[in-house]
């Protein structure tokens, strides 16, 4: 066994990219930080979509019922419905990104 271990060590030392192995903890740490940043960004975007979609942001497009010139339709559909569809797309994009990058199949 010591002989096998010695050969393995020699192989590792002579491997041109051995330096990468030493940097593995640093790389993992950096990856974890990147994932944490991405998770925070996605959470913030989801919260923003909720604030803008059904939340106070809807007043940006909400037509005044008493104003005859207010824009009530966009692409033939009620503007509030179009607004809901747009923010649904944003929410869906957050979920797809989290699915592809953050969520692990076996562990959180």
């Amino acid at each position: 066994m010591p002989r096998v271990a010695g050969i393995a060590l020699l192989a590792l030392k002579s491997w041109p990219n051995f330096g990468l192995l030493r940097e593995l903890p640093v790389m993992l740490d950096s990856l974890a930080r990147k994932q944490k940043r991405l998770a925070t960004a996605l959470f913030a975007l989801m919260a923003f979509a909720l604030l803008m979609g059904p939340g106070p942001g809807v007043h940006l497009v909400n037509p005044d019922p008493s104003d005859p010139d207010a824009i009530r339709f966009l692409f033939g559909m009620p503007i509030i419905w179009v607004w809901a569809v747009f923010w649904f797309m944003v929410e869906a994009a957050c979920v797809v990104t989290a699915y592809r990058t953050l969520w692990k199949g076996d562990k959180s």
Partner: peptide
């Protein structure tokens, strides 16, 4: 859809009970 009355096309709706904070 274009025949919908203006109060059915905006918040808080005809009965006035769907405002942004309630929906959020």
């Amino acid at each position: 859809i274009a025949k919908l009355p203006s109060e059915a096309l905006s918040l808080p709706g005809p009965r006035g009970n769907w405002n942004a904070s309630a929906l959020l």
